[in-house]
Design a protein around this nucleic acid. Sequence first.
DNA 1: AATGAATGAGACTTCATTCAT
DNA 2: GATGAATGAAGTCTCATTCAT
Lengths: 214, 214, 214, 214
Amino acid sequence: MRPRNEATDQKPRSFIEAARRDQIVAAAIETLAELGYAKTSFARIAEHAGISAGLISYHFDNKSELFQQVVADINGLMDGWLTEHIGDAGSYREALQRLIEGFVVFCDTHRAQVLALGQLLAGVGGHENGELVRSQREQSVGQIEQMLREGQEHGEFRDFSPRFMAVTLLGSIEAIPAELFASPDTDVAAYAKELSMTYDLAVRRSRLSRMTRG
Amino acid sequence: MRPRNEATDQKPRSFIEAARRDQIVAAAIETLAELGYAKTSFARIAEHAGISAGLISYHFDNKSELFQQVVADINGLMDGWLTEHIGDAGSYREALQRLIEGFVVFCDTHRAQVLALGQLLAGVGGHENGELVRSQREQSVGQIEQMLREGQEHGEFRDFSPRFMAVTLLGSIEAIPAELFASPDTDVAAYAKELSMTYDLAVRRSRLSRMTRG
Amino acid sequence: MRPRNEATDQKPRSFIEAARRDQIVAAAIETLAELGYAKTSFARIAEHAGISAGLISYHFDNKSELFQQVVADINGLMDGWLTEHIGDAGSYREALQRLIEGFVVFCDTHRAQVLALGQLLAGVGGHENGELVRSQREQSVGQIEQMLREGQEHGEFRDFSPRFMAVTLLGSIEAIPAELFASPDTDVAAYAKELSMTYDLAVRRSRLSRMTRG
Amino acid sequence: MRPRNEATDQKPRSFIEAARRDQIVAAAIETLAELGYAKTSFARIAEHAGISAGLISYHFDNKSELFQQVVADINGLMDGWLTEHIGDAGSYREALQRLIEGFVVFCDTHRAQVLALGQLLAGVGGHENGELVRSQREQSVGQIEQMLREGQEHGEFRDFSPRFMAVTLLGSIEAIPAELFASPDTDVAAYAKELSMTYDLAVRRSRLSRMTRG
DNA sequence: AATGAATGAGACTTCATTCAT
DNA sequence: GATGAATGAAGTCTCATTCAT
């Protein structure tokens, strides 16, 4: 009598069901951000949500399924945010710059989400829910990689391995939440500027190259 | 009647005791790298070491103390490695380059250690053993920051927030183990070169600035 | 998501919850009386109750909380019993006599309870749950002491330290369960009579004093 | 290769063996008095004695055997003390008085021993080492009982059940250590006087009876 | 749809005891 | 005689999950 997983079963979820799932996911995010992966139990999540622990098992097949949903939700949120933020950039350099700054602002305005995501990616990382996590990460890397590659093809970026640079940039970005946690008074706007400038310097074609190439 | 902690008690550990502790730490590293933080229990570690779970409690006061030792050991190893690798660089640019490449090679040759460290820093991160982890990270950041600052003072690096850049660089470095895990065929040497070049571009004073300044 | 402690949280316990707690307390009393403090584990108590050991942890925060409840329940039972038994005595001598005989009968009819209480007071006594135990004992001593003091003020009892006499009497009373255990065929009614007479002789004003004083 | 128990094996213990056993028994007494029965482990006892825990197992077959020895030693000590204290009393009333006062002073001057004995008699009471404990107690009760009976036969004491009175008196005496612990400033000499007077009043033949009888 | 009672597995830890040295 | 390393059992407690209501 439990509602089936949406992915495997096409029966649509009822409204109330969807609302509860959202509420539980939100509570899970809070809990992960607050207590860390190791101490995030159904009991704690239920406390945060003001419901019983059993209800979580009712709405999710698994702890694993819950965490997958958390990751998916946060990723969706982030994707939406970035798409909106990047908008119609006039160049790849500008797009990259907006991407980076958008990420930083996202980290600032969605601290709980980013902390929670970090807990899940690492705490469970590459092992328990390995496939999900890896695929999510591959997706993030892939998107950045794609942008970088196109920028190279348009002659805006120098020659580097797009995958390498995507991984490197993603690493720099993922370090932000911890830094904001460690130094809460960080000037986020300045941080964003510095990061985008740093990567602009790292990827742009030098003036010399530009001249040479044409 | 357990052997006491070396830090608080000056009684030196016996040879066999030290060996067992090392063995347990090694088994813990393997287990963390293999199963991830969440599934790393005394029972699993003991399995890896071929001993009984109780023996771990006999040699370490706590799970916490064991993990602290793991972090300390890996950090010591890494410090030694990097000190040796950086050696006597002729300039700050060269030092930074050696640091980065050294790190990459270390990640390659000590995959389990780096994965384990990542599990501990994140899985436990900011929460359970927060102080230890934070202080360890601060130390790493601080060392890089110091080098960057000196490089600026010697006019080799452009003007940026050394703390910001240290955090950013560390993030890029910490992304490496996961990438090596995800893409095991990565050409590590090339990766190292690309990373050091990337950060060289990011931090060096532009030719224009150099002309202007002096 | 465990039910909270009633003392600190005003949410009332459900009926079934209260019943389970009572059942567990009863099983704990049986176990303590049967096996003694040292061998009374959750596993044994659960066996007695026909439930799983985990369920005890579900209903009680602690082993300590369980034992506190045991002590509180038995004390409550005893208080009720004695209040009822002493009733409206015409004099302090009579009241003391009824108190003592009531105690003896209580020990006889509630052997498990009295044995269990003894285990908790001694086994844990002055050490683990010291405060609780000490306060409970102080309360018992205090009540007897009060009655003795009033009896003195009314000229029914001779001059002695009420506290000393309360402690002494309580000791005599607490020795009863062990004696009933050791000599199960003891004539309890006779025992009760002998004890009350003994203390009557010990505390009453001598005929000479009574003449002298008034 | 372990030394055998003296009771079952007539081989006498070597001097050093006896000394070690005494040392361990002494440490056990300290530990019991300090930490209570539940927390008295070989490890703690060994700490107190400055030896290794294994050595206790070497000198005693069992935890049980160690505790039996503790009880036996304390009882022996107490017997010696009381024999000496009672000495040659001119009457049974006087003997009883000396016995009681001697007990009280013993409790005062041997607090650790009496606390430890209490822990063992109760904590383990009637259950684990039941036979030993019961027999030890029977012995104590028996000795007092014997004195009371003789006093009756000599017409010094009134008519009561000697066993009942012995148990009652022993209870009063055993309450003393806890009281001294709870109220450390108690005037021990006064306490002793009050206790002996109390029991004198309780057991002596009334003047009337004495006249009647002879 | 939701609760709360219940379980059984598994976590860390402590303990008495054994054994090689 | 003594140590300290080692074990295996048992202890309390937490957890995800199930199920009657």
